[in-house]
């Protein structure tokens, strides 16, 4: 029953003299909620960038649903069903909230360049479906009422939520969340995690989560990979990770000092 959806094989990312990620191996099973943790600068975001095609790994391979995807462009990887959010929020700030969501589904709306000009039946139908779908997704995250807001004017926490909605709109099988709760208070974070659990159910999603809050990760993730200085130092269930001396030394030790 545990089928590998995503597999990273000896991924290495070299920036000049710095090996930001060094021969990293890990996999994510279909339907799993997996955590990726590590201290600041451990290379977590770099891993996401390699998985989603933003960076070309120096060496190694990424396999998604059995197909190698290294070297594909980010949009091709997104269309195959692997998508992400950004740690440093990258919304289309001058577009409205719903437009942000619509952009992400645009490859699903199949009509020609001239269809909108002549307002063909096909165009109108696909377009109203797109809007319907976008509103539904926004509704899940309580953003439907602000659909016409300029996305850059949303409060910070809602911008983070919109990032997730937008990623969902691409119709993903797997979503990589880069610190989705960063900057949120305890209550907001709790609320967000419930939402993540909900969308996981509703869209049968696989989730790879980067999160700084250790307790939170321990609480919801089924398995965890720990990075330090670009190297995987531990992986396993929260219990295993929690009691690993290497993790305590590298991560908790530093964090609590």
């Amino acid at each position: 029953m545990s089928e590998k959806l995503l597999e990273a094989r000896t991924l290495t990312m070299q920036f000049g003299g710095l090996k930001a990620v060094n021969e990293l191996d890990f996999f994510v099973n279909r339907g799993e909620l997996m955590g990726l943790i590590g201290p600041n600068g451990a290379g977590k975001t770099t891993v996401f960038n390699m998985l989603t095609g933003v960076y070309q790994p120096t060496t190694g391979e990424v396999v998604f649903e059995g197909n190698p995807i290294r070297g594909l462009k980010p949009y091709q990887i997104a269309r195959q069903g692997l998508t992400r959010t950004f740690q440093n929020i990258r919304l289309f700030r001058d577009l409205s909230v719903i437009e942000n969501v619509l952009v992400a589904g645009s490859h699903l709306a199949r009509y020609g360049l001239m269809a909108p000009v002549f307002e063909t039946k096909n165009f109108r139908q696909l377009e109203s479906e797109q809007y319907e779908r976008a509103r539904h997704l926004l509704d899940i995250f309580g953003l439907e009422g602000k659909k016409d807001w300029s996305s850059g004017t949303l409060p910070y926490g809602e911008q983070r939520k919109l990032e997730i909605v937008r990623a969902l709109a691409t119709g993903p099988k797997m979503i990589c969340l880069d610190e989705p709760a960063a900057g949120m208070n305890h209550k907001e974070t709790h609320n967000l995690m419930e939402l993540i659990a909900k969308i996981r159910q509703e869209f049968s999603l696989t989730v790879l989560l980067i999160e700084h809050d250790m307790k939170l990760v321990m609480g919801i993730c089924e398995r965890i990979v720990v990075l330090d200085h670009g190297v995987k130092i531990e992986q396993g269930t929260p219990q295993v990770v929690q009691s690993s001396p290497k993790v305590i030394e590298a991560y908790l030790g530093v964090d609590e000092a």
């Binding site: 989603t52 462009k73 949009y75 998508t83 919304l91 490859h107 691409t170």
Partner: peptide
């Protein structure tokens, strides 16, 4: 608006 984000969203 943001070319990198656009690509990541399948554009």
């Amino acid at each position: 608006e943001d070319e990198i984000a656009a690509e990541a969203m399948g554009v």
